[in-house]
């Protein structure tokens, strides 16, 4: 069994009313992206979640945003959200300090297929902030390293300064049978790593197209290109999982905002096995 126990799940008072939680620490990852370390809602229970799930994070008086959980599911006593500062809610959250409070509703949504990956090679492909929802999977894989085959982590970011979790990427790369390849869209002469899009990186790894499970998260265009590349390399759609983003107001399938064809991204996803959504990915403005 994979350790993502949900027995101690925090009781949610009402699905539209947040529980209050306290910031333990804020860490700036890059110029515009920060991680909030949060003490879970103070009702004594651990805040259990599955890798890939998200919370609706409420900033006092300003609003709420759907943000994936980026901490280790085996350590439910401290939650982490890595947040890109892009609007009023995230700007407000970016100013919070130790001891400040936020509201949390969740965890919501379907997570990554960690169980299914047992015994297989796993390729994690992330673009930009997309590494945040994948970090809990990496923690889970690493924690039980022997249960999985080869682990490949491919990560693309805008520039070297935009890379998240650099220290951890370094640590993961040193694990047995584990490769971490990072690329950036723009480099300078001081950057010794790869420059180019993340799809290029598949040329450098010899992936076993039959026994690899791929988990992809990043901007939708990046995922589209990645999925194309993977299929060109002989992977079937069934081996590919992606995590999607849409506007969400409730997170629980009631507000209608996150619909993608017949799917509600919030409750049917955000993680989907590719065949569930592939036929709509090429359609415009769905």
């Amino acid at each position: 069994m994979i350790e993502t126990t949900l027995e101690n799940k925090t009781e949610i008072k009402s699905s539209m009313v947040p529980a209050l939680a306290t910031i333990r620490r804020a860490i700036w990852e890059t110029d515009d992206t920060f991680t909030l370390l949060i003490d879970p809602p103070a009702d004594g229970n651990a805040f259990a979640f599955k890798p890939g799930q998200f919370n609706m994070v409420y900033a006092f008086g300003v609003g709420e945003s759907a943000i994936s959980i980026s901490s280790d599911p085996a350590k439910p006593n401290m939650l982490a959200h890595t947040i890109h500062r892009v609007g009023t809610v995230t700007s407000t959250l970016s100013k919070l300090k130790r001891g400040d409070m936020i509201g949390l509703r969740g965890p919501f949504g379907a997570g990554w297929p960690v169980e299914e990956a047992v015994g297989k090679d796993v390729c994690i492909t992330a673009g930009g902030i997309g590494l945040a929802p994948l970090r809990p999977v990496i923690y889970s894989l690493v924690r039980q390293r022997e249960k999985f085959g080869r682990i490949i982590i491919l990560y693309g970011a805008r520039s070297p300064l935009d890379l998240l979790y650099r220290v951890e990427l370094e640590q993961w790369s040193k694990l047995p049978n584990t490769e971490v390849i990072v690329t950036v869209d723009r480099g300078d002469s001081s950057w010794k790593g790869h420059i180019g899009v993340v799809t290029n990186l598949f040329s450098y790894i010899k992936m076993d197209s039959r026994s690899t499970l791929v988990m992809v998260c990043g901007p939708e265009v990046m995922m589209k290109y990645t999925v194309e590349e993977l299929q060109r390399r002989g992977l079937s759609q069934e081996q590919i999982y992606i995590s999607m983003e849409r506007n969400m107001k409730c997170g629980i399938g009631l507000c209608g905002h996150c619909q993608f064809g017949p799917k509600f991204i919030c409750k049917d996803g955000p993680v989907f096995r590719l065949p569930e959504v592939h036929h709509l990915l090429d359609k415009k403005e769905i």
């Binding site: 008086g61 107001k249 409730c250 009631l254 507000c255």
Partner: peptide, 26 residues
Amino acid sequence: CFCSTVEDVTDLAGQNAERFRRWDSC
């Protein structure tokens, strides 16, 4: 039709806030 959105309001002092759900349109 059931779509809804949420709206936050605060008092001028920024000490009290409320959250509403209201009908929305696709």
